[in-house]
Design a protein around this nucleic acid. Structure first.
Length: 277
DNA sequence: ACCGGAGCCTGTTAGC
DNA sequence: TGCTAACAGGCTCCGG
């Protein structure tokens, strides 16, 4: 499931094939991909606009357009983006297709950006003010502006189960189920702890661990655990470096105790009952 | 403020 | 073997 490192990997991969390109058409067989505005409005508004930059905020992919609009895509559970030649056979779950204008010269004729989405949870926004979509997001975990002191304060301002907080995008943007479990493991913190009970050193350790696992995820180009693959179709490598996620019953690498799995917020939560207190 | 549950989806897997 | 039911999970909305 795409989280910050997976989304970052996608953004980096799409930069080269998309920047400088202009949208020539937009088609969909799943109009509900379009959260804001409707598909019809988005199509009219998008045609002719060029991409001049790509970015990421939390798990959202941002495409900065020539008119000042921003095309925003959220992959949710199963979204996949790739730029391919128009002749490439459509995949069963390619639901929304952005045709790119042909460019003079080179082999950049007849390409399109395809949004594949098996579970149809993905969402597309086309807005002038990105804050309408991104305004409620918490800070970027890799932003140096988020200091250990500030993070500790934020944790103590709430009295929630710490893992639930990490998954709350209004608290911190970009962490999902896999990286939350991994970070709590490396910080030695039980996922059920209340956020306001963490000591200063535990908060600092948690922030450090979050940054380390996200950085590792980016370096390894994402975790191909469920449906995620890179835009070119190849797998990431982070699934080979997880310590607890999906390792239910297998020994903890530190102490040998079997990793436990519990359900929290209807989501699998993996942890070492000995190392994480 | 916080929590739990339903709903959105479909492919996979467990169970009979 | 062939069927159905349960399950997974990011996010939003609703009720308590």
């Amino acid at each position: 499931m795409p989280e910050l490192p997976e989304v970052e990997t996608v953004v980096r991969a799409l930069h080269q094939p998309l920047v400088g390109r202009k949208f020539a058409d937009l088609t969909t067989d799943w109009p509900r991909h379009f959260a804001m505005p409707t598909y019809e409005e988005a199509r009219h508004r998008l045609l002719g606009q060029a991409v001049f930059g790509l970015g990421r905020r939390g798990k959202f992919i941002l495409m900065h357009l020539s008119t000042g609009d921003t095309l925003i895509i959220h992959l949710r559970m199963s979204g996949h983006l790739s730029v391919v030649d128009s002749g490439t056979p459509l995949h069963k779950h390619d639901h929304t297709v952005f045709r790119l204008a042909s460019m003079s010269g080179a082999n950049r004729l007849g390409q399109e950006l395809r949004f594949r989405d098996q579970r149809k949870f993905g969402r597309i926004y086309l807005v002038n003010d990105p804050e309408v979509v991104l305004g409620s997001l918490g800070p970027e975990p890799l932003d140096a502006g988020l200091s250990p002191d500030l993070f500790h304060e934020k944790l103590h301002a709430r009295k929630r189960v710490v893992k639930s907080l990490l998954l709350d995008q209004t608290f911190l943007a970009g962490v999902g189920n896999i990286y939350a479990d991994e970070a709590l493991y490396y910080a030695g913190i039980n996922p059920l702890r209340k956020s306001n009970t963490l000591s200063e050193s535990e908060s600092a350790a948690l922030l450090t661990a979050i940054r380390q696992v996200l950085q590792m995820g980016i370096e390894r180009e994402g975790a191909s655990i469920d449906l995620y693959v890179k835009p070119d179709g190849s797998k990431g490598d982070m699934q080979n470096a997880v310590a607890v996620y999906g390792r239910t019953g297998y020994p903890c690498y530190a102490c040998g105790t079997p990793i436990e799995r519990i359900s929290l917020n209807n989501r699998g939560t993996h942890y070492c009952p000995v190392c994480q207190q």
